[in-house]
């Protein structure tokens, strides 16, 4: 069922929804950007429609609502410990198609990998309903169509905001009541069919090609360009890596927490064990590890789709202007070169 709401009705709808849901949406944090007088858009709880940023891609991804940058796992007192509490009220998460598709990737890792279901992911994820927001085709870093993430399936509501209010479609009946008395409309969501940016992912099914790619000189470019800051992975819709960190409170060392803190394979020390040398010790090695994860390894393990959803946030947030799509294209060239040389009877690895 579709609806068309004016601004007052939109506010009324959010009021009704807020009685039962914590509503999260992209929100503008003025002047909180990396550079002076630049804003940041990230997910936060919202109360009114004007807080929702619908015409610009968020700098940080929707995943933060479900798997936040930091979260407590256990609380420790002197000789006891207890699990952190879960929030009770369900969440309505307004997100773009890429963000919603990204949850399929998060689910594979947090809920399925190795047959272990991560309690901390699961208990939030179970409480989340998605409202897909029309993104109007995104910006020049988006390549969701190439990554097949432009048409999410798992959503309860579809929203299209504009200056005149909101058009909505209800696809999950449990939301029907909130629209009682709202003007109906034949709105159905449309999803972007083509991005300005298109990415072709090279075929990496051949092991010899992959091994040759790992030692290909293309990665050396990043030793000079990439500063290993990890902005790309923190901003990534699909990165899931974290580190478990125990802390004690400054004022009372007897009590503390075990926390989960976002980690990045781009930051030095990600693979370093106590007392040992780092394995991937150059920015180029780390870049190669990230790119192959996004465009080969994840799919090789889980089968269904590549990890990257083409949201472009990594490109958007990189302070050194390293574009993921350009990097994949460079990788495609390297793979062509490797395949040609292998076909030529060129040197196999090892």
């Amino acid at each position: 069922m579709g609806y068309s709401l004016n601004p007052d009705q939109t506010a009324e709808l959010l009021n009704r929804l807020a009685e039962d849901y914590r509503i999260y949406a992209p929100k503008r944090f003025p002047k909180q950007g990396r550079y002076s007088d630049t804003d940041i858009i990230r997910y936060d709880r919202i109360q009114t429609p004007d807080e929702i940023v619908w015409d610009q891609k968020s700098d940080y991804p929707a995943k933060e609502v479900i798997s936040p940058i930091q979260q407590a796992l256990f609380y420790f007192t002197e000789d006891e410990y207890r699990e952190s509490k879960k929030a009770k009220k369900p969440v309505l998460l307004l997100a773009r198609p890429c963000d919603i598709t990204a949850q399929l990737v998060q689910e594979k890792i947090y809920a399925e990998n190795g047959g272990f279901k991560d309690l901390y992911y699961d208990r939030v994820h179970n409480k989340v309903k998605f409202a897909v927001m029309d993104c109007g085709g995104g910006d020049d870093t988006c390549f969701c169509v190439s990554m097949g993430s432009n048409k999410p399936e798992n959503y309860s509501l579809a929203f299209k905001f504009d200056e005149n209010g909101l058009k909505a479609e209800v696809s999950d009946d449990c939301f029907a009541d909130y629209f009682d008395g709202m003007p109906e409309d034949d709105f159905t969501p449309e999803f972007v069919e083509e991005n300005e940016l298109k990415v072709t992912i090279p075929d990496l099914s051949d092991r010899d090609v992959r091994l040759a790619l790992k030692s290909h000189p293309m990665w050396k470019e990043f030793d000079k360009r990439c500063i290993s800051c990890g902005s790309c992975t923190v901003a990534c819709s699909t990165c899931t890596c974290f580190t478990t960190r125990d802390i004690c409170y400054g004022d009372n060392p007897e009590v503390g927490e075990r926390r989960r803190v976002t980690a990045s394979c781009q930051v030095a020390g990600f693979d370093q064990m106590a007392g040992q040398r780092e394995i991937r010790s150059t920015a180029g090695d780390r870049m190669r590890y990230k790119i192959l994860h996004k465009f080969h390894d994840h799919k090789a393990r889980f089968g269904d789709r590549h990890m990257c959803v083409g949201c472009g946030r990594c490109t958007h947030m990189c302070p050194e202007f390293i574009s993921i799509s350009a990097t994949v294209n460079k990788m495609a060239d390297a793979v062509d070169e490797i395949k040609a040389s292998l076909a030529d009877g060129g040197n196999h690895v090892e």
Partner: peptide, 9 residues
């Protein structure tokens, strides 16, 4: 400027 996560503003 250095922070990848917006933890300093």
């Amino acid at each position: 400027r250095a922070c990848p996560a917006g933890a300093w503003t």
